[in-house]
Design a protein around this nucleic acid. Structure first.
Length: 753
DNA sequence: GACCTGCTGCGGGGTG
């Protein structure tokens, strides 16, 4: 990885290096000049053969930084086939970017085509007949081309000069990122030379991880251009609200009470009305709970409603209506949203960001803030609303600490330190490998095992799979129960009976899972979907899309629910099995916050009181000296580590015979005494290196990927052990820290490599 | 006590 040479920005006239038609286009746009990242990118793209990583916040002009020199470079390209591929995680982003470069490409007489599931087939067909220019595409559409039209795929991708990957940070972790890695390897294999890769990304913490993703075998040669623009001024407040005693489900639709969520709604209604804002509510359930409250406040005040929900279960139409309303900016609008408005969809600029609940990820908090204060001289505004349970006399020690208030403060401290979480452990290697085995066989009409291995696992993150793992996987896929593949007498591996069915399904292209759902329709208009597991019939009441409904007709076959407005309702269940993990560094910062005595100026009076009470409880319980606390029949073990270590420690305790449950700052052992727990932790501390393979035997729920039902459990267990091996080497040390025999190590020591 | 993402190919009819 190299940083952009000074000379690139000082080189006279990078503007003059651009194609004459592009220069003319820039003049016509009335630009004052090129932005710094654009200036640097022109030099790197036109003067070097390097891959390139451009890291800058939203609206910094990254797309143009990549495309101005790329279009200059491919203007006279006459090869048969596409010259450049732009890969995006979102269809909506492809549509935005298409609008931005279409005019420019027209001027250059370079063909540009949108290639995703909602894009017109006729434009794709034109490109298939005469493959040239630029395609804007999703990973799943690349997959579909390989599987359905392998001959066309070779023609389209066989002479690519550039591959641009937008929102690269979203591909650094998770199965979809591994999927794209494999697709890009397969594209490289179609050509005698490798297309240069250009990654566009939001600010990321560890640029070397992104450089390695772009070019695993030669990450040193990736040139990095980082936006020098500093963060805008931040206006900030953390507000705390105490729930009254015996309030049960705080996220229900119940209103007119003294519950914290109702008072938060009061404050939001007063504060946000009249301007454009984003409110991140954390879950779809809470988005609906809050949308309902704010709409009813508008009705009671007899003013037009300005508050609308936006989440992944709402229909595309409703979401686009809201995005357009924000973008046009004619009417004041607050979107109440989950994470759907975090990525770079164009929604114009908003006045402020609000969030319910303490941030669990600093990266995501920064991304949200990037949506506010984007104009020069305008500060970003952030309000964090924290709900705290009412403390009874017999409250648990964890409640007395007011962890969420302290977590909100810690996340702000890390934001100021410019910390961003690196990607964590990925449990989906085997699922992606299996998916790609089926895909490559389909594309090539059969393939030998050694070539499959080389294509899929020959480099990059999937090379964690060793040859023996791969053989295990192939054997399981070929078993009569699975029937995914079979082997011809000459050794060629071909699709089996089930493999044929799976690869022909429309559901095959994505490597992530989707569940069955009801579709909600009101007067012929699509509202969105809810999980099929919601038990509904005629007369069922639903709060959805910011309104209240009664089910009037049920189509059990097509899974459609007709609904009509109704005064009462209940929020449907959205299936949730997991919790967002917290990084070591955030929890370490929480511990530091308990130890300090400064009171941040951005706390409201209640949050200030709760911080002081939390610190007092911390000292009263002796948590500055001890990490084991008896609470009734339970023992709290305070690890002050992130989710990864807390879960590994819980599994280790289980392997030693102790059941425990994981929380944000440690684990809790039920029905035990401090003495018993201490004895077992002592045993762990005296074991020089815990054999991770033995611990792996106690992991449950190993099947998390889409195709994991076909993966041998033994292989999943081995891969789990391999990815937790580094962490497990710290178990002994961790045990000593808990026993007070060792200083806590700094979390930076334990950052994943 | 969580969120998000994606999707073929074909025929038939109408229009410019």
């Amino acid at each position: 990885m190299t940083t952009s040479p000074r000379s690139a920005s000082d080189a006279p006239g990078s503007f003059d290096r651009l194609h004459p038609k592009i220069r003319q286009w820039i003049w016509e746009q009335g630009w004052e000049g090129l932005r710094d990242i654009q200036d640097k990118a022109i030099g790197v793209v036109l003067d070097s053969g390097n891959d390139l990583l451009i890291a800058a916040s939203t609206a910094a002009g990254k797309t143009e930084a990549a495309f101005l020199p790329i279009l200059t470079s491919i203007a006279d390209d006459n090869d048969d086939g596409l010259s450049a591929l732009y890969v995006s995680p979102l269809k909506a982003l492809i549509n935005d970017q298409f609008r931005r470069i279409e005019q420019l490409c027209d001027r250059m007489e370079i063909n540009v085509v949108r290639w995703h599931g909602d894009a017109s087939f006729s434009a794709k067909e034109r490109t298939l007949r005469r493959p040239k220019g630029v395609a804007l595409i999703t990973p799943e559409s690349i997959e579909a081309l390989f599987v359905r039209r392998p001959t066309d795929a070779r023609k389209l991708f066989g002479s690519l000069k550039f591959v641009v990957i937008d929102e690269l940070h979203s591909f650094l972790q998770g199965p979809r990122g591994l999927h794209l890695v494999s697709l890009l390897r397969r594209i490289d294999e179609l050509s005698s030379y490798r297309a240069r890769r250009i990654g566009l990304s939001a600010t990321i913490g560890d640029l070397s991880i992104a450089a390695r993703w772009l070019n695993p075998s030669n990450s040193d040669t990736v040139t990095v251009i980082e936006s020098g623009a500093g963060a805008p001024e931040l206006k900030l407040q953390i507000r705390a609200y105490i729930d009254p005693p015996e309030s049960d489900d705080a996220d229900s639709l119940e209103d007119d009470s003294d519950a914290a969520l109702d008072r938060i709604a009061d404050h939001l209604f007063e504060t946000l009305r009249g301007s454009n804002n984003l409110l991140f509510a954390g879950s779809r359930r809470r988005v609906e709970a809050m949308s309902d409250r704010l709409r009813r406040r508008s009705e009671r005040a007899k003013v037009p409603n300005e508050f609308f929900p936006h989440h992944g279960s709402l229909s595309k139409e409703l979401r686009e209506d809201l995005e357009d309303r924000l973008k046009i900016g004619a009417l004041p609008t607050t979107a109440i949203t989950t994470t759907t408005l975090e990525l770079g969809i164009d929604i114009g600029s908003v006045k402020s960001i609000a969030q319910i609940g303490a941030p669990r990820s600093v990266a995501s908090l920064r991304q949200r803030l990037g949506r506010s204060g984007r104009r020069k001289g305008v500060p970003a505004i952030l309000r964090i609303y924290v709900r705290v349970p009412y403390l009874t006399v017999d409250a648990d020690p964890l409640e007395k600490l007011h962890l969420e208030v302290v977590q909100a403060i810690a996340s702000i401290r890390l934001l100021i330190q410019r910390f961003i979480e690196p990607p964590g452990i990925d449990p989906c290697l085997a699922t992606v490998a299996l998916h790609q085995i089926l895909s490559v066989i389909t594309e090539r009409g059969g393939e030998r095992a050694d070539r499959l291995f080389r294509t899929i696992c020959g480099g990059g993150p999937l090379s964690v799979l060793e040859k023996s793992d791969f053989v295990d996987l192939l054997r399981a896929m070929a078993s009569p129960e699975s029937a995914l593949i079979e082997q011809a007498p000459d050794g060629t591996i071909m699709l089996g009976r089930i493999g044929e069915i799976i690869t022909q399904s429309r559901d095959f292209y994505a490597v992530f899972q989707s569940s069955e759902e009801w579709r909600l329709v009101a007067g012929g208009r699509a509202l969105g979907t809810i999980p099929l597991t919601n038990a509904v019939g005629i007369g069922s009441l639903l709060a959805f899309a910011g309104h209240r409904w009664r089910v009037t007709a049920v189509d059990n076959k097509a899974h459609v629910l007709d609904v009509a407005p109704h005064p009462a309702a209940r929020i449907p269940r959205f299936e949730t099995l997991s919790v967002e993990p917290v990084h070591d560094r955030l929890v370490a910062e929480m511990l530091a916050t308990y130890g300090d005595d400064d009171v941040p100026p951005y706390l409201d009076p209640i949050a200030r009181d709760l911080l002081m009470n939390g610190r007092q409880a911390f000292r009263d319980m002796g948590l500055d000296r001890t990490r084991l606390i008896q609470s009734g029949r339970d023992v709290h073990v305070f690890l002050w580590r992130g989710s990864a270590m807390n879960s590994l420690f819980a599994i280790t305790l289980k392997s030693a015979g102790l059941e425990s449950s994981v929380h944000d700052v440690g684990v809790t052992v039920a029905n035990a005494s401090v003495g018993e727990v201490r004895a077992i932790i002592r045993r762990i501390s005296e074991t020089p290196s815990m054999p991770i393979e033995d611990i792996a035997d106690f992991v449950e729920n190993l099947q998390v990927g889409k195709f994991d039902e076909y993966v041998p459990v033994g292989l999943l267990r081995r891969l789990w052990a391999r990815s937790n091996a580094d962490l497990s080497r710290r178990l002994q040390d961790q045990a000593r820290v808990i026993l007070g025999e060792s200083e806590a190590f700094s979390p930076s020591d334990s950052a994943p490599k």
